[in-house]
Write a protein that binds this DNA or RNA. Structure first.
Lengths: 202, 202
DNA sequence: TTTAATTTTGACCGCTTGGTTAAATCGAAT
DNA sequence: ATTCGATTTAACCAAGCGGTCAAAATTAAA
């Protein structure tokens, strides 16, 4: 094979990722993916039998990467407050680098709920185990003021949503691209403190 | 016109709303909307010239309703803490009743950013005015610990995101429909307190 | 060099899509 | 009853869609 080229299969996956992330399943065109990969459309079907198959591959990747970070950080053995700082930072940064992934996943769930359920349950860190772990950890630190599930959802909401709604927020807050970045940087610093204050009894 | 029937145009809009909200622009089919409205497909084009036009009508409705609540609540003259309580409650309730709207709007933004910008600027309560108002109000109450824009985003994030990600959360937290409702009810009570604690200097 | 297997292509297919059109139907005014 | 405009329909169209296929090009094995 040639010098700097990736394998054809990898090129296809990269192209499919670009197109599917931006346009979703219904909005994506096989021809556009082929063009993006610089190959013939028939070759897509040679490697992945159908559009559905190709989408599944892209979705699994995105979904796995999205939750691997969260779940592995949560199940780490560092103290709770440090954990919260890590999650906010790590998560926000990841989504800054992959701006289309959150909405892509949200739509993907509606497109095929059963597959998502299967992906979650077959994860190396299934949600049920994570939940139990957080609950135990919070009890160990004497935090009874808030339900552990509510805490998790708060962390995710505050970290994820502003980037999910980025185009909207930029418009509402009238921010340029740089100003929006600054705005997010401030959040990275302040969010953990806000969350920690919300769980420590005063 | 016949007894209990709505006007044809209203019937079309209702049908389009149902289909577009659930499937988005790309996933929706004009034939499906026609069937849902119980009319011929050509009639859609008689009232609205194109799919794009019909979508715009539906999107404007959803978008306007979504932000009218927020903006009118914010610009009300009640005290800040009461305002926050109202927003959390009202907003969460609205989205419980219109589960598809948030993701629909999020996708709509990607589909036609310029139109969204226009809708925002032509609103009776443009964002810039709202922002200024919140800033003044916070300064009047001596709240200098947090940027007013960060506060607004926090409120929206905590209220909206759990319902945007409902199918995912139900799965992760392993909740039935009723249990999820209960979970959200708890949030309605606890969110305002959490937010208020985050802005009052200890 | 010949052979066999794999990879890539262009041309093609059947179907669905948004959209059009001419004719039919209806409602009210004359 | 006739006319006339607005409404509704069935039939149709060109374009675009996902997908197929046989042949060409490439690579590896003999």
């Amino acid at each position: 094979m040639s010098e700097n080229q990736l394998s054809t299969e990898k090129r296809i996956l990269e192209a499919a990722k670009t197109v599917f992330h931006k346009k979703g399943f219904d909005g994506a065109r096989m021809q556009e993916i082929a063009d993006e990969a610089g190959i013939n459309k028939a070759l897509l079907h040679y490697y992945f039998r159908s559009k559905e198959n190709l989408f599944d591959a892209v979705f699994s990747d995105a979904f796995t990467e999205f939750f691997r970070r969260l779940f592995s950080l949560i199940s780490d053995t560092i103290p709770l407050d440090e954990k919260i700082r890590y999650i906010c930072n790590d998560y926000i940064t990841f989504m800054q680098q992959n701006p289309f992934i959150p909405v892509f996943i949200l739509n993907g769930i509606q497109h095929n709920p059963e597959k998502v359920a299967a992906l979650l349950q077959n994860s190396p860190n299934p949600p049920s185990a994570i939940l139990k772990q957080v609950k135990i950890m919070m009890e160990a630190e004497g935090l009874h003021g808030i339900d552990h599930r509510q805490l998790i959802i708060n962390i995710i909401s505050l970290s994820v949503f502003p980037l999910v709604a980025k185009p909207l927020l930029k418009n509402i807050l009238n921010l340029s691209e740089e100003e929006f970045s600054d705005f997010i940087e401030v959040r990275k610093r302040e969010l953990p403190e806000l969350i920690l204050r919300s769980i420590h009894k005063e």
